[in-house]
Computed example of a mutant assay.
Amino acid sequence: MRLEQFKQFLALAEFRHFRQAAEHCNLSTSALTRSIQTLEQELNCELVTRSTRSVSITQSGELFLTYCANALEQFNHFKTQLSDFTNDNASKIVVGVTENTAEITPFVCKKFMEKFPDIEIEIQQQDRSSLSNKLADSELDITIDSTMQIPNNFAITEHLVYLPDQIILFANKNHALSSETTIDKETLTPFSVLGCLSKNLQVQKMLQETAASMQKLTTMKVGTFEQITGYLKDAKHLALAGIEYTNEIENNPELIIIKPEKQSRGIDLSISVASNKTTHPDILNLLRYIGEETQS
Rank of each mutant, 00 (worst) to 15 (best):
E4F: 00
Q5W: 10
Q5Y: 11
Q5M: 10
F6K: 07
L12C: 02
F15S: 03
Q20A: 12
A21R: 07
H24D: 08
C25E: 15
S30L: 06
A31E: 10
Q37S: 12
T38C: 05
E40H: 00
Q41R: 14
S51E: 06
S54C: 04
V55G: 03
S60N: 13
G61T: 12
T66C: 09
Y67E: 08
C68V: 05
L72M: 08
L72G: 10
E73M: 11
Q74L: 13
Q81H: 09
S83I: 11
F85P: 04
T86E: 15
V95I: 11
G96Y: 05
V97Y: 10
E99C: 01
A102N: 11
E103G: 05
P106L: 01
K110D: 15
M113Q: 15
K115M: 13
F116R: 15
I119W: 07
E120C: 03
Q125E: 15
Q126R: 10
S129M: 09
S130K: 12
L131R: 07
S132D: 14
N133F: 06
L135H: 03
A136E: 15
S138E: 14
L140D: 01
T143D: 05
D145P: 03
Q149A: 07
P151R: 01
T157F: 07
T157D: 10
V161R: 00
Y162D: 11
P164E: 11
Q166K: 02
Q166S: 13
I168E: 12
F170K: 07
A171W: 03
S178P: 09
T181Y: 01
T181M: 02
T182F: 10
K185R: 12
F191Q: 05
G195Q: 06
C196R: 01
Q202S: 09
Q202F: 07
V203H: 08
K205S: 13
M206S: 09
L207A: 08
E209Y: 10
M214Q: 02
K216P: 00
T219M: 04
M220A: 00
M220D: 00
V222R: 10
F225Q: 08
D234E: 08
A235N: 14
H237S: 06
L238P: 00
L240G: 05
I243V: 14
Y245F: 13
N252C: 13
N252I: 11
P253D: 04
I257P: 08
I258G: 02
K262L: 14
K262I: 15
S264H: 02
R265E: 13
G266S: 11
G266W: 02
D268I: 13
S270P: 01
S272R: 12
D282M: 04
I283H: 01
R288S: 15
E292A: 06
S296C: 12
